[in-house]
Structures are given as structure tokens and as C-alpha cells.
Amino acid sequence: MTPLPRTDPLRGFLQTLLIAACLWAVAAVLLFFVVPGIETFPRVLLFSECVGLTMVAIVVFLRRTRQFARFSPTARWLLIALVALPGGYFIGHQIAFILLGESMQMVGHRAISFIPIVFTLLVGGFGLHYYATREQLAAEAAQRAEAQRLAVESQLRLLRTQLEPHMLFNTLANVRSLVREDVDRAETMIDQLIVYLRSALVASQTEAVALSREFAQLRAYLDIMALRMGPRLSYRLSLPPALEDTLVPPMLLQPLVENAIKHGLEPKVGAGRIDVEATLHDAFIELRVSDSGLGLPADGGLDAQGAPASTRYGLQHVRDRLRAAYGDAASLRLERRTPAGVSAVIHLPR
């Protein structure tokens, strides 16, 4: 499955440094005006940036230390503050002295140094509070996303328990009638049923499958439906070799194919066709399930996404799974076909 976009660690670290540099630059300006005559502004700015960026480096180092990972988030950030604030103040000053070509010396022994110390603690504490809050919000967002994913997967399992027995019983009933009339067709239906059930079993045990396996399961399903519907159903599956190993949520296309048969082809008089195509574009991957069935209703019985009420649950289920797997990077829409039929189009990020 194409994963949700993640922040590159180096890019995130550089972004943190940039934010910290801006914060400590503002702090240097404030300190320069709050304590007139303390130092020249370039010198105050240099000391401020050295102290602030040293604190950031200490925080990043401690957060990657295994010992700190054992503590609760609150205790972890308190310990980080106890180490980073004084450590950043004293080590940052020594770095600034080195950059200025001066001899390293103790800081904080003069009365005038009391205000910079307090100011540094306040600014550093504010920065730590900001990042601790941001980490907590990110953790809560990750928990909500995981809960949504689990809810969607539980819905998928429920959908399987509802659909597979229904399909299995209908198929076995067809096999029973074919055993006496057409043994070869009965054997073919049993073979395709085995392939379908094996694929469904694999899909129930994983969070992502290759498109080649997804199309193999669809082929087995459509072969079974073609044997049941006879000449009323024909189909075509098109999967380019470049997309065969692309990972997608299991049984992603199954509800769309079932909708096409149930609401498009079965109520229609005469023959119908289903085309399932995967196409690679520059910015996305397109999965398209098209049918030549009755099409969308001409009246206003559509939802906000253009779906008739009868197919709303299956489409919403697919949308929920796309959102859980890809966030806002994936989409599903319906298109009317000419002269009749519907295309369900999924766009996935590359």
C-alpha cells in the first residue's frame, strides 16, 4: 500500500532548527531592549542563538535516548527540561566564546547575568512547552487515525462475513444444479470458487495486497458470476506490468464490482459488460471499474458524491478505507457513461 506521506527526519530536524533560530532571534531583540547596555546587539544575538540551538541539540539527543523512552510523556519532558535548559545555557555560552575567539569563562557570576538567565529559562521553557504540546497533539492524532483504521478494518471483516457466505451459498446452489447438466462448467465454477476463497483468506490476514493479487481475486469472482449469469455478463481486466506489485488495501475493488453487477447489470435486460482498468499517470494511479448497466438515476436520488442511495453503503465503505490508508491523498468518484453505465474511479497517490 502506498503509505501516507511522512515527514522526512532530516527535513523535520532542519525545520525545528529554523523555528528555534527565529525564536531565539526574537528573544535576543527583546533582551537587548529590556536590559540596555548589556552588550552590543550582534553579541547578544550570537549568545542567544548558541544557547537556543544548543538546547535544541540536547533535546533531540535526549529524545533519541532509550532510557528516556521508558518514562511517561510528562516525566520525559520534565527530565529533558532539567537537562536541556541549564546545559544549553552553559554549553551555549562556551560555544559563543569560542566563536568570538575569547577564552571560555563561567557565566552567571555577575549581577547583570541574572536577568539573561531568567530570560533564557522563560524562553527555553516556552519552546519546550510548545514542542511537548505539539508531540502530544501528534500522538492523539495518530491514535485517532489508528482507531479509524481499526474501525474500517472491522467493518471490512463484517462485510466479508456478510458477503462471502451469501456468495458461497448461491455458488454452491449453482454448482449443485450444474453437476447433472454440465459437469465441465461445474468443475470450472468450483475451481474459481477455490481461487476466490483462497484470495479472500489471504486478504483477511493482511493490511495490503499487490494489485496483481487483487485482480486475480476479481477474475475468480467475475468468472463465477459469468458462469451464473451466462452470456448476460462479460468482462475485461487490464493491469499494466508496472503496477502489478503496487500495494492497495485488500478487497478494495470488490464492492465496486459487486455494485456494478447488482445495481447495473442484473436489473438490465440483455447483455452487459464490466471493465476493470489500472492506469499509471504522472501524479497518481487510477483504478476504474466501468459497467454498461442501467447507469445513475436521472432524478435527484443521489448523495453528495453523486451516488444513488442503493449503492451508498458500499461506496462509503470504500471511501472510508481510502481515507484510513491514504488520508486526503486518495479519492473515489462516480462518472456517467454514454450511452449508459457508470464508472467508479479511484485515484491513489504514487
Rank of each mutant, 00 (worst) to 15 (best):
R63H: 11
H317E: 00
G127A: 15
I19C: 09
A81G: 14
V118G: 10
G306S: 08
F284Q: 04
V276Y: 06
R63T: 07
D328C: 03
L62G: 01
M167I: 01
L265K: 11
R185D: 15
N170T: 12
E286D: 04
V56C: 08
M229P: 02
I115F: 06
R288G: 02
F97I: 05
P116G: 08
S343M: 14
F114I: 13
F119D: 03
A132C: 05
H166W: 06
A298K: 11
A57D: 08
G293T: 07
R63Y: 07
A330N: 02
R176C: 10
D291G: 05
S238K: 03
D191I: 08
A298Q: 12
Y221E: 10
A111N: 06
T2I: 13
V175C: 02
G87A: 01
L201V: 13
G230K: 10
V179S: 00
R323Q: 13
S103L: 11
R149V: 01
A132D: 01
V179M: 02
T311L: 07
E146F: 11
Q94M: 09
Y326P: 00
L78Q: 03
L62A: 03
S310K: 13
R6G: 07
S310D: 09
R350N: 15
T7A: 15
F114V: 13
L315C: 14
A330I: 03
A132W: 04
S343G: 14
L253S: 08
P308S: 07
A25C: 06
I19M: 08
R144T: 10
S113N: 12
G87C: 02
Q305H: 15
Y130V: 09
R66A: 14
D191H: 11
D223K: 07
A75P: 04
L99H: 06
S72M: 06
T311C: 10
A28K: 07
Y313N: 10
T161C: 08
V257M: 05
H347T: 12
L322H: 04
